[in-house]
């Protein structure tokens, strides 16, 4: 197998808040194979955005990459000089922020903003940059006649497409998209996912897709990394995650999701409780307080992320019993009452 395009190794990222250190990502480890789409899923606050932003090193002022390496095409993003990092951004790694609104400046026409990136980062002449902007709009399915519009004249879906166009401007190798379809209706959502995938195939891109929606992952991602309270808890190909998850959190997520293709509407089962306070994480497994399968061992000893089968990583003491636990997890009674 080829070397992965990106290899995240034991990365920890902390926010300083007063005297406290909030470790939003702790010992994260995962690979992004060349030319694949990798999902990064988990509930709000689990550290997805923090992890994703760290890949471009555009992080909050109070944030710090405290440990680990991020090997990208032979170099370590963590130890690159600011100057080298700057030439990597846009050209090799492009980031689409959580709210596409924020990636476009409301006071400038969309064309100007794309042309600026192309000239400034790509060293293109003005006329070449203009031609490229037209190409980019055609590529993401917006009428190039709309290039002269201001961002507020675009619908939510168009703004998201424009943000994708901007990210693709300099033909990066890796695109990191933070919740690119979360606020959009099902039709636009589907159109954007289809667009992203066909571009990914045409251009041989790799994509990291941050989302809390497992149907998005099911639709588009080759592999999926599940995060919980700052930790990677499972990492495998998407089909395996959906059909034969090893981690109880992944088992629980499936029951919580309405499925239009199921025979009846059944009953959805939430995962009761909420994630732990990252300023003061519990000993042992971070999911233990909500896990229906927690044992005494789970509450004292933290499970390590291990390779259970080739390419399938999981952090759970009871992974070996997964077949039986999956059966139990299907019973609504297993998950207690709503929280």
């Amino acid at each position: 197998m080829d070397a992965p395009l990106l290899s995240v190794k034991d990365v920890s990222i902390a926010y300083k808040v007063g005297a406290l250190d909030i470790v939003a990502v702790s010992n994260a480890r995962f690979d992004v194979p060349q030319g694949s789409i990798v999902g990064l899923v988990g509930e709000s606050g689990c550290g997805k955005t923090t992890m994703a932003r760290a890949l471009t090193r555009v992080i909050a002022d109070n944030a710090r990459i405290a440990a680990g390496q991020m090997q990208f095409a032979g170099q370590d993003i963590v130890s690159l000089s600011e100057k080298d990092m700057n030439s990597l951004r846009w050209r090799d790694i492009a980031f689409i922020p959580q709210s596409a609104m924020n990636s476009l400046d409301p006071v400038y026409r969309v064309e100007y903003q794309i042309v600026e990136v192309l000239r400034d980062r790509g060293g293109m002449s003005k006329s070449t940059a203009r031609k490229r902007a037209v190409e980019l709009f055609e590529m993401v399915g917006i009428d190039p006649g709309r290039l002269r519009d201001f961002p507020h004249q675009f619908s939510g879906g168009m703004r998201q497409r424009a943000a994708i166009a901007l990210a693709l401007a300099l033909e990066p190798k890796l695109v990191v998209a933070d919740e690119p379809v979360t606020a959009l209706d099902v039709i636009i959502q589907r159109q954007i996912l289809d667009q992203l995938r066909s571009l990914q195939r045409e251009l041989g891109l790799s994509v990291i897709m941050v989302t809390h929606d497992i149907s998005v992952v099911a639709y588009i991602c080759d592999r999926t990394v599940v995060m919980y309270a700052g930790k990677v808890v499972e990492d495998c190909d998407t089909a395996t995650l959906l059909n034969e998850p090893l981690h109880p959190y992944a088992m629980g997520l499936k029951n919580a999701f309405p499925d239009l293709h199921s025979a009846g509407t059944g009953i959805l089962t939430p995962i009761a409780g909420s994630p732990p306070d990252l300023a003061n994480p519990p000993h042992g497994c971070r999911f233990a307080a909500r896990c229906p399968f927690a044992t005494d061992q789970c509450r004292v000893e933290e499970p390590a992320l291990t390779e259970d089968a080739p390419g399938h990583f999981v952090a759970c003491h009871r992974a070996a019993e997964a077949v039986a636990l999956r059966e139990e997890a299907k019973q609504p009674g297993t998950w207690g009452t709503a929280a």
Partner: peptide, 24 residues
């Protein structure tokens, strides 16, 4: 029909056919 086709599902073997309608 288009709205039904667009609903995302948590299965990897769901249809990836283009939607019957484009645009918005």
């Amino acid at each position: 029909q288009a709205l039904v086709a667009a609903v995302p599902t948590p299965h990897v073997d769901q249809s990836h056919d283009p939607l019957p309608i484009g645009g918005s």
